[in-house]
């Protein structure tokens, strides 16, 4: 299991290949990459703030929970903070398992929990100013799927 919280960019392809190589014999690898999307009015950049210390602990707890629920050979979470340009990768998750059902479910679970339980806050900066992204009720409701 690997959890990385970093300011620098990452190459999702390189990360996925390395992860897949480490999970040799797993049979199934599912990955998701989140990318900074443009917004109405034109996004200049996104600022991501986080809570150093708690961030790593919270993500590790989420990954540990996923490993209890599904049979995973390995799991990877990378999440960036700082200033990110439109089109830049924000984060990625990958889950490796013997079969695809567990890998898909674990990756989906990791994404739902990272959205609402990992201490990151996004701010969108446009020509009109800077606004904190509000949490969506849907994101919180999504967690009940896993109860």
């Amino acid at each position: 299991m690997q959890v990385r919280v970093q300011e620098g960019v990452f190459d999702a392809g390189v990360e996925l290949n390395a992860f897949s190589a480490r999970a040799e014999g797993a049979g199934a690898v599912v990955s998701f990459t989140g990318i900074v999307r443009d917004v109405a009015g034109g996004l200049q950049h996104m600022m991501i703030e986080h809570y150093p210390g708690m961030t790593e602990k919270a993500i590790s707890a989420i990954v540990a929970e996923a490993r209890e629920r599904w049979s995973l050979a390995d799991a990877l979470v990378i999440h960036r903070f700082g200033q990110l340009a439109p089109g830049a990768p924000i984060m990625m998750v990958a889950a490796a398992s013997a079969h695809r059902a567990d890998a898909f479910a674990a990756a989906d679970f990791l994404m739902d929990y990272l959205k609402s339980r990992a201490p990151f806050w996004k701010k969108e900066v446009t020509a009109e100013g800077a606004d904190w992204v509000a949490a969506k009720d849907d994101d919180e409701a999504a967690l009940t799927r896993w109860d």
Binding site: G34, Y51, G53, M54, K57, A58, H79, I90, M91, M111, L114, K115, S116, R117, A118, P119, F120, W121, K122, W132, V133, A134, A135, E140
Partner: peptide, 25 residues
């Protein structure tokens, strides 16, 4: 550094953090 509640006791707590709902991912 563990998510808690507003009615939680503070005995023994060294670090309290307040923030809006998280927007990771």
């Amino acid at each position: 550094q563990v998510l808690s509640d507003f009615d939680a006791p503070l005995a023994g707590v060294r670090e309290v953090a307040f923030f809006p709902p998280m927007t990771g991912g």
